[in-house]
Design a protein around this nucleic acid. Structure first.
Lengths: 196, 196, 196, 196
DNA sequence: ATTTAAACGAGACGGTACGTCGTGTCTTGCG
DNA sequence: CGCAAGACACGACGTACCGTCTCGTTTAAAT
């Protein structure tokens, strides 16, 4: 209904170039050292074109994350009937991916950026956990119905615990080896009391 | 024999003022917005005095953390014989403390700073978990001997899991309520299968 | 043969609005601070419409001057038979007009603009002196014929001397009082030697 | 009496480099096209060093003028007893100098800059006329005593008339030939009525 | 009446320069 | 020689305009 007087449309070319430059720079020099001026230069774009559409460096990053330019996303594997096994497979994969030094470094940059930008935080953590969340909820319900587990935790809590641990290790710069996965999944299912 | 060339000793007054100014500023404006010039001005200190003794903003912060000026530390409570109960009490306290908005915000700043300063990271995470680690190890051993648990995890892993979850929630800006403690401790001990 | 393809004629509405906006802005904020964007906004006109017809800020100003929107023009008074008296009357009027602070300020802006635009310079100084020049030449010839003067200067030189002095005082921000007129006219006619 | 706490003194090296760069640039590209950034780059100086000591482009120019880096200054010639002749010699020289295209262009730039900076205006016009003013006053008094003239004008007025005319011709981009000097001096002494 | 092509208002674009802030280094005189 | 003060060269910030470039709409002359 509204008729915003006709004007030159936003340049998709510029938008894409900016996101790509940001993706490259954050990987090359890190979030803190990356400057908006540098992004503009790399993208052959005027600074104003950036400021026209984004309000901060972290907002550009948020869009990169949203577009999947930065963090890969990992779906839960197909249901094999054994939730514990499926989770283990999936979690090992996630660990392997995020544990790679380049990705670990990138993740630290993103966390740093998200630490003082709630909007980026929302996007980042949604991107990190979102894709798994829904199917995880369904699986937990099934497993509970099957008697495989007696769930005391929501899918959100499970995911937060797993990712929280990974992120914590990455932030504190501890190794993120594959055996971490086994220990966590074991504890998650059996608890410290161990399997009966 | 020794003839310590006549030299003026480092000013404790200046050192203290700098740390105090840093502590105040990081709380007031956040880590990113805090500048070394701002610290110098607030501490009535020349910039050179800062650069003479610290190599970066995060290094000052690291010293603040080391001196206990910033993060409170929480010891494990005395052993009542029931590890699960003791952990619950302790963890509820830690959650309460870190969940306070002011502390949460401060923690985000510290994490952000530590994300690209490994030295600060070491100090910060040591400060966060260190005091609990040793006694936790002892307790786990005892509990295992008593048959209370069948430990599959090291004390480090337990602590990382608990703190990882808190830190994750704080970073993602989710509420950190006291019930989180119960859920996590339950799962930690019983696993998803639940208590027998 | 010629087939002037059908086209929309230039909008007089836009042209007028642009000149008016320029006239207003140069008075309000001065030449340097006046921007083409500001003119476009004030005139509710697209920037392109300005760039289509004028090549610079000073060119718009030149057209304003040409249209008489900015500088008033002052003709020589009717011939009363006494050239000296006529000049005095006229010059006092010119001084009064240009000496008014608002006009003085405007004149400084115009001079500034003309200083690096020869085209504007031509228009501006023609506008300033042109109307008087022709009749001045005739009067000088008559006065010479009558023996009133023994002209050694062309009308151009006389005018330049008079306007030069006014402009100089305005540029150097000295007062331009009415007594300046008497002194100058006296000297112009009698010279430093004074009347016989 | 005041004791401004001891601090690093202003760098004469920087100050000089800035003035020299300004002098060069204003001649090379003109006042309008000269940027503070360009001055800083040419002088190998931080922009802040400029902004710390000068409040505008024209203020730097004013200091250049004050230091005699830009406009040459021309003293009145020694007294030969004939004021008219002395003035003629001096004025021809001034005309020759200012009439040189490079200097004319420079003068237009300075006038333009002075048009919206009263401080520069004061410095510029003082520099232009100041050195002559005092001796001119003395000469006029002597000449009057000798009966050479019957002065109706102050030294200031004489100088303004002469310089006003030159400046006016330079601004309006008319030729400034040597014969202009003769005409002006003739009129100045004899008036339009001519010599007796 | 329909066609048609330039003029129009709007405003996004790649740039340049602005004036400010913070960096890390340096240069003073004082204690 | 450490210190408070602060000037220095440098680089990035976020803003203002530059002159050019699309957009869809308007409009008057030539069909």
């Amino acid at each position: 209904m509204s008729e915003p007087s006709p004007t030159r449309p936003r340049s998709e070319r510029a938008r894409t170039a900016i996101l790509a430059a940001t993706r490259d720079l954050v990987a090359e020099v890190g979030y803190e050292q990356m400057s908006i001026e540098g992004i503009a230069a790399r993208a052959h774009v005027g600074k104003q074109t950036i400021y026209r559409w984004w309000k901060s460096k972290s907002a550009i990053l948020a869009e990169c994350v949203l577009e999947g330019l930065i963090l890969p996303s990992r779906e839960l594997p197909p249901d094999t009937g054994d939730l514990r096994d499926d989770l283990l497979v999936w979690f090992r994969g996630a660990l392997h991916e995020l544990g790679d030094p380049a990705n670990a470094s990138l993740l630290r940059g993103l966390v740093s950026a998200a630490a003082d930008d709630p909007d980026l935080a929302a996007v980042l953590y949604e991107r990190l956990t979102g894709p798994q969340e829904a199917s995880m909820a369904a699986r937990l319900r099934e497993a509970e119905a099957d008697g495989e587990i007696d769930s005391a935790l929501t899918s959100t809590a499970v995911i937060e615990m797993l990712f929280g641990t990974i992120v914590y290790r990455i932030l504190s710069r501890l190794d993120v080896g594959p055996d971490l996965a086994d220990g966590l999944i074991d504890t998650l299912f059996d608890g410290l009391r161990g399997a009966k």
